[in-house]
Lab assay of single mutants.
Amino acid sequence: TYYTVKSGDTLNKIAAQYGVSVANLRSWNGISGDLIFVGQKLIVKKG
């Protein structure tokens, strides 16, 4: 599943929405910090 980042989104918010961990979101998307951008597509695997 792909999720497109919207204004106001955070990794924590997206992780909670999908029932996954922030660590997994980072791993699946090659993100090291907490910086995400509006319009960015993130890979999300269902929890």
Rank of each mutant, 00 (worst) to 15 (best):
I14W: 01
Q40M: 09
Q40L: 09
L35E: 15
V20Q: 09
I14C: 01
A15W: 01
L11C: 03
F37S: 09
I31P: 02
S7H: 10
N12C: 04
S32A: 15
K13S: 14
Y2N: 07
A15Y: 01
V44D: 01
K41P: 07
N12Q: 14
S21M: 06
G39I: 01
V5E: 00
V44K: 02
A15S: 07
V5Q: 00
G39S: 06
K6F: 05
L11S: 01
F37M: 10
G19A: 11
G33Y: 09
D34N: 07
T4M: 10
D34G: 07
K6P: 01
V20R: 02
G8V: 04
V5K: 00
V22Y: 04
G33M: 08
K45D: 10
A15N: 01
V38W: 06
G33I: 06
A23N: 13
A16R: 10
K41S: 14
Y3V: 07
Y3R: 03
I36N: 02
G8M: 06
I36P: 04
T10I: 05
T4N: 07
N12G: 13
K46S: 15
T1F: 14
K46L: 12
N12S: 13
T10W: 03
A15M: 03
G47P: 09
L42R: 00
A15K: 02
K45W: 11
N12V: 12
D34H: 11
T1L: 11
A16V: 14
K6D: 06
K6L: 14
L11T: 03
Y3H: 10
V22C: 04
F37V: 11
V20G: 03
S7Y: 08
K41I: 08
K46Q: 15
Y18L: 09
V20D: 03
Y2D: 06
L35Y: 09
D9N: 02
Q17I: 14
I36T: 05
T4Q: 09
Y2L: 11
K13T: 15
I14H: 00
L25P: 00
L11N: 00
D9Q: 02
S7C: 05
T4R: 07
F37G: 07
D9S: 02
I31C: 03
V5I: 07
N12Y: 15
Y3T: 04
T10Y: 04
D34R: 06
S21V: 05
D34V: 07
Y2V: 09
S21W: 04
L11A: 02
D34E: 15
V38D: 08
N12L: 12
W28V: 03
L35K: 12
N24L: 13
D9P: 00
Y3Q: 02
S7Q: 12
V5S: 03
D34C: 07
Y18P: 00
K46A: 13
F37I: 14
I36R: 02
K13P: 02
N29C: 01
T1K: 08
L42A: 00
S27Q: 14
S7V: 09
I43F: 14
G30S: 14
Q40N: 04
L25S: 00
K13A: 15
I31H: 03
T4W: 11
L42F: 04
V44A: 04
F37N: 12
K45M: 10
I31F: 08
G47W: 13
A15T: 02
L42V: 06
S27A: 11
S21E: 13
V22I: 13
V22K: 09
T10S: 12
D9Y: 01
I14D: 00
A23R: 08
V5R: 00
G30N: 14
N29P: 00
K6Q: 11
N29W: 01
N29F: 01
A23S: 08
V5H: 00
Q17E: 12
G47A: 14
N29A: 02
T4L: 06
G8K: 06
V44G: 01
G33C: 04
T4E: 15
G39T: 04
A16N: 13
L11M: 07
I31T: 05
G33N: 09
S32H: 12
G47Y: 09
K45V: 13
I14V: 09
V44Y: 04
K46D: 13
V22M: 09
I36H: 02
F37C: 05
D9F: 01
T1Y: 14
N29Q: 01
R26W: 05
D34I: 07
W28S: 03
S7N: 09
A23D: 13
G30R: 13
T4I: 12
D9K: 01
K41R: 12
V38I: 14
K41F: 10
G8I: 03
T10P: 01
V38P: 12
N29G: 01
D34M: 08
G19V: 06
T1W: 13
K13F: 15
I31M: 11
T4H: 08
L11H: 01
F37A: 14
I14M: 02
D34S: 12
N12E: 10
T1N: 10
S27F: 09
D9E: 04
Q40R: 05
S7K: 11
T10L: 04
S32D: 12
K45S: 15
Y3M: 06
Y3N: 01
Q40A: 06
A16W: 08
N24E: 14
Q17H: 10
Y18R: 04
V38R: 06
L42E: 00
K46I: 15
S21I: 06
V38F: 06
K13L: 13
G47H: 13
F37D: 15
N29E: 00
T4K: 07
I31N: 03
T4C: 06
Y3P: 01
W28I: 05
K6E: 15
V38E: 15
K46C: 05
G47D: 15
D34W: 09
V44C: 03
V20P: 02
N24W: 13
I31S: 03
K45Q: 11
L25E: 00
D9I: 02
S27L: 15
S7F: 08
Y18K: 05
Y3C: 03
Y18C: 05
I36Y: 04
I43W: 11
Y3D: 02
S32I: 15
T1D: 14
K46W: 15
D34T: 10
G39D: 07
T1E: 12
V22A: 10
K13N: 14
V5T: 05
D34K: 07
G8T: 06
I31Y: 03
Y3W: 04
V20L: 08
L42S: 00
K13Y: 12
G33Q: 11
A15E: 02
R26S: 13
G19Y: 08
K13R: 15
D9T: 02
G19I: 06
N12I: 10
G19L: 13
N29Y: 01
R26F: 04
K13C: 04
S27R: 11
D9H: 01
K6A: 11
I36Q: 02
L11E: 01
G33E: 09
